[in-house]
Design a protein around this nucleic acid. Sequence first.
DNA 1: GTCTATAAGGCGATAGAC
DNA 2: GTCTATCGCCTTATAGAC
Lengths: 191, 191
Amino acid sequence: MKNKIESRKEEIIRVAAKLFKEKGYSAVTMRDIAKTMGIKAASLYNHINSKQDILKAIIISLAEKFTAGMLEIKGSGESCINKLKAIIKLHVTLSSQNIYGMASLNNDWMHLEEQMPYYIKLRSEYEDDFKNILEHGIGEGELINVKPDVMMFSILTTLRSLYLWIPKKEDIDLNDLTENLSQILLDGINK
Amino acid sequence: MKNKIESRKEEIIRVAAKLFKEKGYSAVTMRDIAKTMGIKAASLYNHINSKQDILKAIIISLAEKFTAGMLEIKGSGESCINKLKAIIKLHVTLSSQNIYGMASLNNDWMHLEEQMPYYIKLRSEYEDDFKNILEHGIGEGELINVKPDVMMFSILTTLRSLYLWIPKKEDIDLNDLTENLSQILLDGINK
DNA sequence: GTCTATAAGGCGATAGAC
DNA sequence: GTCTATCGCCTTATAGAC
């Protein structure tokens, strides 16, 4: 893990992501970002080329981390249930490390310009891989025989919303959360 | 159920909700709404007072429907599991009837002005009622003993995201969906 | 009820001084 | 690297003709 001093560009991206989470990309102005940093809007352009570049930096790097995580899980040779537990852990880890970025990834991707097709491709491939794991689990009798579409929707929307919920619990233990989520998502809540 | 002819005001709200789902409240202009309706932006102001009024009309009416539904479920005297099934059905029903409005309810509530505190109040009370049902279920041994916060988060985020998913399945049967979701959310997917 | 014209201000981005 | 000043465009909303 690199631990170098945060560059001005990195600071802009960090501050912007936080504001994007609160109001959304379109409602945040370059003047808002600059004011939060204590400088003038024009000064931002010495470090970034455009507002769009900030959004791109936030979303694409995060989407690629999910793709890399799924690639590893796919090739792990584990059982379906263990692969699903690994996916849950992947989402808890990346969401807790990038709470603000996750908001843009979920809610502001439609404001991407040149990078939109690339983002859509990564997301589609991720969902295909996820569904493939579920279909194998059903085929080999590990999972109940319910439509894999509905299963994936249910699990993935919960995981994608983690960023909304993790910051609220200040005393949260991420291992506990991963364990509780695995139990609830895989085994249900009915005794 | 009223079946009167759609007024111009209702048309504006319907068209706006669809655009808000695609790009978010802040990124949709009055010109966008007007152009979709085939009129000029200035003409919209003969039917509504402001852009903010449109958002208010979309979000508050929907939030109040959820509150009314929860009130009925709370007083039903059913078991915890049956109350949860009724909540799932409530979300499937309201989401399928208001796909575009659900997007604003989830993503654009932070752009409410005067009505924001009222919206926050309705949402908090809904979540408190939901958690209360879960806590009773745990206390009486109907549900497994996992943190009710995590349970509620998991179920409620899935239900709140239904609007993203229902329109994709053109041939969907809402009773099937309710049944599948109940099975997955309550009993899990692990065989 | 819709139009044209316009007010009053905010937007992203650039030029050039320091 | 930050500033002031500014450009050209877009924003919500209003006034008043038809």
